[in-house]
């Protein structure tokens, strides 16, 4: 019974946050571009999302006749499923956790790898050259960045001596891992952006070149799922960063732990949006080069150094 409440709570909060993020992103982008953003529907324009959702629900659910229909329909579902599943292992606060897995990090990594399928399949099933190109870019990009994403958090695992996220948070009682694991944090941050294919690493979408990349053919609620999935991804990566490097729910006791968790996550979400407001998209080959030639060695050195220090001290 308790679990049911927690699951329902997590779903409700997470999905609402994703929806709100759409509004938040538009407002923040506007703020950094000296504009207002949506400010007409409801107070501060917050009901803009509601209006958009209503609109998107009433749109024709169009499946291109030339597409591979079952796969086309499945793809956005996969994305939502993998991301939502990962939230099961996120410790929001002590006791506020769906499933305390002892291999939570591996579960997170596994699910995020599965997420690639949704994009590759979506692009493939669309049977459109832009979609296919987007899908190919996405698969290469995500494979690449997954490698050192995993490696970069091994330092944290070593220091916490656990794969359980709950235990990792608890291990940061004295110092947040951001300090000892700064290099790991950097690599993870970059890899996280790439994993969510957010700007500046939205190369699979790259509307300037590929129309809308892998989801060119998607419209209506299926596009909506991809869209919400992207914001869920942002929330997820922010939450993971907070859990692994910024002490999770830890914080001064005058406010409840769950507030601290959400506060820290919120800061990172804003950071993601700031990145979008400020950075241009790199070229595809630049992205790969940075990944293989800089981030991977950095992550490896980090893991070696961490290992060495733990071993010898």
């Amino acid at each position: 019974m308790n679990y049911a409440f927690i699951i329902a709570g997590v779903l409700l909060v997470v999905l609402n946050i994703a929806a709100l993020l759409i509004w938040l992103e538009r407002r923040l982008l506007a703020l950094w571009q000296d504009r207002y953003g949506p400010n007409r529907v409801g107070p501060f324009g917050i009901l803009q999302v509601l209006a958009d959702v209503i609109k998107i629900f009433f749109k024709e659910d169009w499946i291109p006749p030339f597409s591979d229909k079952p796969v086309f329909v499945m793809a956005p579902g996969i994305l939502m499923a993998t991301i939502l599943l990962t939230f099961a292992v996120i410790p929001f606060a002590p006791g506020f956790l769906v499933f305390d897995s002892n291999i939570a990090i591996l579960f997170f990594l596994g699910n995020s790898s599965l997420g690639v399928y949704s994009i590759v399949l979506g692009g493939w099933a669309s049977n459109n050259k832009y979609s296919l190109l987007g899908a190919m870019r996405a698969s290469a990009q995500m494979l690449t960045y997954e490698v050192f994403m995993g490696i970069s958090i091994m330092g944290v695992v070593m220091m916490a001596d656990s794969f359980s996220l709950k235990e990792i948070v608890e291990a940061q009682e004295k110092t947040w891992f951001i300090f000892p694991q700064f290099a790991g944090f950097l690599v993870f941050l970059v890899a996280g952006i790439a994993e969510t294919h957010r700007l500046p690493f939205d190369i699979p979408e790259a509307e300037g070149e590929l129309v809308a990349g892998f989801h060119s053919e998607y419209s209506g609620m299926k596009f909506g799922l991809f869209f919400v999935g992207e914001y869920l991804g942002v929330t997820l990566i922010s939450a993971i960063i907070v859990v692994m490097f910024f002490g999770g729910w830890m914080g001064p006791a005058f406010l409840p732990p769950v507030f601290w968790f959400f506060f820290k996550t919120f800061i990172f979400i804003c950071f993601f949006i700031l990145l979008r407001a400020s950075l241009p998209r790199p070229r595809y080959d630049q992205l790969m080069e940075v990944g293989w030639k800089i981030l991977l060695p950095l992550a490896l050195i980090n893991i070696l150094a961490t290992g060495a220090i733990i071993l010898f001290l």
Binding site: L31, W32, Q33, D34, R35, L274, L275, S278, L279
Partner: peptide, 13 residues
């Protein structure tokens, strides 16, 4: 550029 963009939060719209 991230910093400069951030500073725009305090500019006039």
């Amino acid at each position: 550029s991230i910093w400069l963009t951030f500073l725009h939060a305090f500019h006039k719209r």
